[in-house]
Design a protein around this nucleic acid. Sequence first.
DNA 1: CCTGTAAGAGACACCGGTGTCAAAAGCAAG
DNA 2: CTTGCTTTTGACACCGGTGTCTCTTACAGG
Lengths: 350, 350
Amino acid sequence: MAPRTREKSGKQPTINDVAALAGVSKKTVSRVINRSEFITDKTRQAVEQAIKMLGFVPNPQARALAFRRNFLIALLHDNPNAQTVLNFQQGVLDAIKDSDLALLVRPVDRGSDRMLDDVRIFLEKQRPIGAMLLPPISENDELAALCEDLGVRYVRVGSAQLDDAKHCVSSNDREVVAEAVGKLVDLGHRRIGFVRGPVGFRSAAEREKGFHEALAGAGLTLPDDYSAPGNYRYTAGIDAGEALLSLAEPPTAIFCSNDEMAAGVMSVAYGKGIAVPADLSIIGFDDSPTATHIWPALSTVRWPIREMGVRAARTLVPDFLDIGTKPGDEANILASTFIERQSVAAPKRA
Amino acid sequence: MAPRTREKSGKQPTINDVAALAGVSKKTVSRVINRSEFITDKTRQAVEQAIKMLGFVPNPQARALAFRRNFLIALLHDNPNAQTVLNFQQGVLDAIKDSDLALLVRPVDRGSDRMLDDVRIFLEKQRPIGAMLLPPISENDELAALCEDLGVRYVRVGSAQLDDAKHCVSSNDREVVAEAVGKLVDLGHRRIGFVRGPVGFRSAAEREKGFHEALAGAGLTLPDDYSAPGNYRYTAGIDAGEALLSLAEPPTAIFCSNDEMAAGVMSVAYGKGIAVPADLSIIGFDDSPTATHIWPALSTVRWPIREMGVRAARTLVPDFLDIGTKPGDEANILASTFIERQSVAAPKRA
DNA sequence: CCTGTAAGAGACACCGGTGTCAAAAGCAAG
DNA sequence: CTTGCTTTTGACACCGGTGTCTCTTACAGG
């Protein structure tokens, strides 16, 4: 299918082969490849035909060397949620599909004290044009400073603006959490519990803020024992569920800072014979696969992660992507969505 | 922390800078970098010190060009299970950590009819040393042929040997499924249902074979209506659950070809008031996060995916990794494990 | 002390592209 | 047909490493 006369010699044709075949200098071929404007149509066509005949593909290493810049962008993550990483990655790939860029993916061990050095070595070795930082490591200011220091562009992805607009892509989690909790209030819930995310995570803080906003808006208060600690893990959901559902006057609805913890709370409810959603409404966050794999399916908040990947790439390397309107200075705040499923209902009349 | 006197000029030091500082030729520096043996300790130390002083990191693009070979390996996948991809990827990174290699990750759209051309373009452009193919695309013989044709090494990851040993890393899924189903039999189950994987997938075929082996070993037969079709999706599990659990004489245990379908079956059981595991035992496959996020937690089969990533990398590029014993010709068949959780129990006496 | 040999180090070309600048070509005006 | 200018093309150096081959140097043996 691919146009190629190249014999199966195993060797790639080079720019010199193309130049020889087209009867021009290699510099002229280079001009065609790079879409220089100072070239006659006739020459361009001759070169393009030679390129096609030989199945020539420019060697990215050689280009990188000559350009004094390579064509790599890096994705750094330390994410417990694999689906999120992969979706984001897919968005980035959507964005760079027709460019010369390639994507390096690099997991980072947030826990390790050598983390910064590891990343430094990686960046110095690979010298990507830019790096995209996924939460939670996007919240690490030292990491951003490191990129800055090394002259590597960066974009931080998060649940709120963490930095200047040109270094940020985020979603409006706080608002959407407030909206979701508002729905609980509208249904008549007055005793609403909360399962927190891990301490020090911006995403957790944003979700908590949104929760408090909604409560305040409805004139409700959150008793101390209605707020349980968590760490985004399923087991934390179990613990939180045990704590909240063992109260003398348990909540009729619980907002959990992510889906996994919501699944944990739900399994506790199930064990205690508390029916969801009849006796207890539950809302999660992430719209992870788990959300639809449990019963009843979980109402949750979906953040536009793939779209954020696209936007992050465009923000990072607009000059390498053929973008009509430079995204430039507009703030990259994308909309999350509250997804209503079966885990929410009006409370029983007490 | 990193040893560096380099002023913040933004420019990387080159091999020439090191050579000048150490008072040797750049070729000598090159010898030190590449651990040539024909060098005196004194010279080597002088060079190493200069490297440290400057914080020199060899430019991988320049090396790639001079070596006529780059230092990239590619991971091609089209996997519905994000966790699997990420775990495998982590294994690969474990294996190449101390090497000069970097990993390119490339999702592939199995459905697209341009898939082969897309991959061809990717491989021609990036020219990785080798490619690792994850299931299900690892089962595509055309893809393997393409790699062969382009002179790109490849390793196919699967649930059974798909090719010569040197191109394969697999797990013994069939045996472990047989073991798992054997446990059901040992517990006293006689009416055991099966939810199939998608048609044409080797992984699905292996799991089905293992199931039939176990039944045959126990002298049991599988009624036609005890085998439901599936496609590895949650919704297929719902359909299968509806079909199997509406039978006049429903199975007392169901083996599902993956966890998501098992979750689907479980939710149907829940809806019908069938208690798991008291009235129905369920086993899944994959040990995906879902398996522990549902209630009761799912007994399942875990395949050693991270370890397979390590092995795949070693099989692909043994010459780039400092491996004591070349894995060479030994077959790369790793052991999956049956994980017992709460979704399995003895059947009630009928 | 001289010679022969092998180990160690260097000079130079080269990998496959791009930047720079000068030369060639095209074209309008004189 | 020149001239003078602009557009198009090419020659050559260079990016930062490695391969090859040659030249030194050190040291053992005569």
